[in-house]
Amino acid sequence: MSSPFRNSFLPRALPSLHAGRGRGWVRLSKRRFASLAHPPLAPPLQGGGFIALAFLLALAGCDREQRDMNGQPKAETAAFVPRGDPRSAEYENNAFHIAQGQKWFGWFNCSGCHFHGGGGMGPPLMDDQWRYGGRMEDIVASILYGRPNGMPDWRNKITEQQAWELAAYVKSLSAHPRQDALSARADEMSNTEPQTLQERQKVVPETKAQPSGEEN
C-alpha cells in the first residue's frame, strides 16, 4: 500500500518538500513525544522502533475517509413497471384518485423532500423534467422501488393502489390533466390560484426534445 501522504497530502508542484519531508517529520515527532512521555521510554520503543510503530498505527486510519473522488451518480436501477399497464388509464385523469393521491402526498410526507411540487431536497415535480420517465408506470416504479440518490423504496410501506393514486396526483402537477378531474382546492396552504382556475400554458413549440418520459 503506497503512502497516502505522497499522493494527496502534498502538492506535486513542491518536489523539495517531498524530498525533505521524512527527516523533518521524524525530528519533530520525536521531540514532541519525548517531551510528553515524562519517564524515559522503554528501550525497544526508542528510536526507529517507535517511529515504525507510530506509522503502523497511523496506517490504520487510511481508509477512514476513503472515497471515490470522481463520483458519478450511481447507475440507475432496473426498477420497472411494464408499459401499458391497464391501471395507468384507470388512475390518470380520475378526480377521486388524484384527490386521494394528494391526501397520501401529505400523509406519507412526500412534501418533506419534494415540497408541494416545487422541489426542495428532492427534485421538483411540477416541471416537465423527468429523471426517470414521466409516464404513470415510471412514476409508480419510482415510488414503489425507489431511485438512487435519495428516493426511498415504498413497496410494502404503502399499497400499490396508493402508489398509483400518488402517481396520478404527481402527474397532475406537471402535465395537463383534464380540468374536470383536477381538485378545485389544494390541501396545503397556497398563495396561488387553484389549478382549475389557472390558465393553461401552451407547450413551448421550440423545445424539439420530447418529454423525457417519451424517450425512455
Partner: peptide, 8 residues
Amino acid sequence: MTRQCSAC
C-alpha cells in the same frame, strides 16, 4: 412495524 400498518 415493517409493513403498511406502521405507515399510518
